[in-house]
Design a protein around this nucleic acid. Structure first.
Length: 487
RNA sequence: GCCCCCAUCGUCUAGAGGCCUAGGACAGCACCCUUUCAAGGUGUAGACAGGGAUUCGAAUUCCCUUGGGGGUACCA
């Protein structure tokens, strides 16, 4: 009998979807899909104070954007409180949990004291034996005095807890070093530990795939499963994603939310590919994967143990590869919203799709991000060019020789009947020769005159799209600038 | 401090005792192509953290040191 694989992605809605957490989702999803299992989404919203509005929608958007579809959920822990309370009661009845009346102040002082004395910090188990040693109605007294207790797990004082992590192998923790952690907070919500264990069991999760930061909690969870009479699932603790300074990737390192990457113009295919390779690899050479190939080849056995730095350079390269692979229509369609958003608002809308489609072939292989498209093609849209006159004067040329070259060119262009790239090339190459200029010198001056840039797509194609009229006008303007400079 | 995890080029990684004078990719550099910029091509530089042990033989196994990271909450 083969067991159906069930994995889950369990983010807390305390912020926007971090690429690290999305990478975790991706691996859990890939694992489920590879095994023909189920993938579910569960929102761990048990911290009322840290909830961020819009976070759930952003998380779900991020998943959908990458094509990570889920079979169940999203479940919300805040709607499942009863389940956790039942589990808590069970633990109390079995003597595996107890109420704790210690005030936050007392706990804080205790912690300070422990740090000062250099002993391992942790709850001192002050209330652990309260119900047995004190009078039976003590709890009643405390509660009427306005103290709402928390529920703590009664940690075994001896022995060790060990488990087999799929990625890390055998891991062992001493029970005596773990404190009696909180299961139920005084506001009635469960902590992560309780809710997570109860839900993973109830949802029949077979493989808990999560980041390494959870590794130290794993033994607590295993003890909880056991105390609850559950069979623990398999665990796979993924390596962390680090920022360039080797600390856990965070806002300080720049963009961390998957939605930010989307908005900058990264392609979901590229993002998926890149994230898939962060901590996992197939072999020593394959870099490019489609979603299907990722699913087909993914395995937890090939996930590395080492934390990985998020390498934006490589992401950019990969995104460029994916952009170049797009069909022209697809690229145009994807670039369009960026042009629409980034071009000056006073320009008339809607933008001409036909015109945009003339330009995109020239931009496609030059853009690494869709967000760069506007900047790379501005002069095709904006009438006014703003550039430094000196850029018109190329190496080995003077203001005068440039003026002369542009004057002649202008005249010749004016006589032209067909203003296409081939005609322009024939004309301008021979013209450069006649003017005794290197092709680059003439073309360079012309390029700046016509686009205001020193780096553009091939000149003749660019001019053809711009059209004769606009080119002549811009050459005229360039000449004006040059003449002002020479007086 | 204590606990846990990890350790191959700057970065992502391949490597599961001889195939390794350690392979690939990004980034770097050089050259080629070329009207500029890209793209592409060719080439180059660049790593097994250190020390022991096991073995005929170690990047690969074990131990120690060092380094890095994570955890240590009525946060997840």
């Amino acid at each position: 009998m083969t067991i159906l694989v069930r994995t889950r992605f369990a983010p807390s809605p305390t912020g926007f979807p971090h690429v690290g957490s999305i990478r975790t989702a991706l691996f859990a999803w890939l694992f489920a899909r590879h095994h023909g299992g189920k993938f579910l989404v569960r929102i761990e919203d048990t911290d009322v104070t840290r909830k961020v509005k819009g976070a759930v929608a952003a998380i779900l958007d991020g998943l959908s954007w990458l094509g990570l579809d889920w079979d169940e959920g999203p479940y919300f822990q805040s709607q499942r409180l009863e389940l956790y309370h039942k589990a808590a009661e069970y633990l109390v009845s079995r003597g595996n949990a107890y109420y704790c009346y210690c005030s936050p102040q007392r706990l804080e002082e205790m912690r300070k004291e422990q740090v000062k004395r250099k002993v391992p910090p942790g709850y001192d188990r002050h209330c652990r034996n309260l119900s047995k040693t004190a009078s039976p109605n003590l709890s009643g007294q405390k509660e009427t005095a306005g103290i709402t207790p928390v529920l703590r797990f009664k940690m075994p004082l001896t022995d060790q807890t060990r488990f087999q992590d799929i990625i890390r192998g055998n891991v062992v923790f001493k029970n005596s070093l773990m404190d009696d952690f909180v299961l139920l907070k005084s506001d009635g919500y469960p902590t992560y530990h309780l809710a997570n264990v109860v839900d993973d069991h109830k949802m029949e999760i077979t493989h808990v795939i999560r980041a390494e930061e959870w590794l130290p909690s794993a033994p607590r969870h295993i003890l909880l499963y056991t105390a609850l009479g559950y069979t623990p699932p398999q665990f796979a603790h993924l390596p962390l994603i680090l920022g360039s300074d080797r600390s856990k990737l965070s806002k300080r390192h720049g963009a961390v939310s998957i939605t930010e990457y989307r908005d900058q113009g990264y392609l979901p295919e590229a993002m998926l590919n890149f994230l898939g390779l962060l901590g996992w690899s197939l072999d020593d050479k394959t870099e490019l994967f489609t979603q299907e190939e990722l699913i087909k080849n993914f395995s937890l056995e090939r996930v590395s143990k080492t934390a990985a730095i998020f390498n934006t350079e490589k992401l950019n390269w990969m995104n460029g590869v994916y952009i170049r692979q797009l069909s022209l229509d697809d690229f145009t369609q994807r670039a369009f919203p960026f042009l629409d958003k980034d071009l000056p608002p006073m320009m008339k809308r809607p933008l001409s799709v036909d015109y945009v489609r003339q330009i995109t072939p020239l931009i496609q292989e030059r853009a690494k991000l869709l967000g760069e498209v506007t900047q790379l093609s501005r002069y095709f849209f904006v009438e006014e060019l703003d550039y430094d006159v000196n850029l018109l004067i190329n190496k080995g040329m003077t203001c005068e020789s440039t003026i002369q070259a542009l004057e002649v060119t202008k005249e010749r262009l004016r006589e032209l009947e067909t203003f296409d790239a081939e005609t322009l090339e024939v004309l301008l190459r021979s013209l450069a020769e006649k003017l005794k200029l290197k092709a680059g010198q003439l073309f360079g001056a012309l390029r700046t005159a016509v686009t205001g840039e020193t780096a553009t797509p091939p000149l003749f194609q660019t001019m053809a799209i711009l059209g004769g009229e606009r080119c002549l006008r811009r050459i005229e303007e360039a000449l004006d600038k040059l003449k002002k400079l020479s007086v």
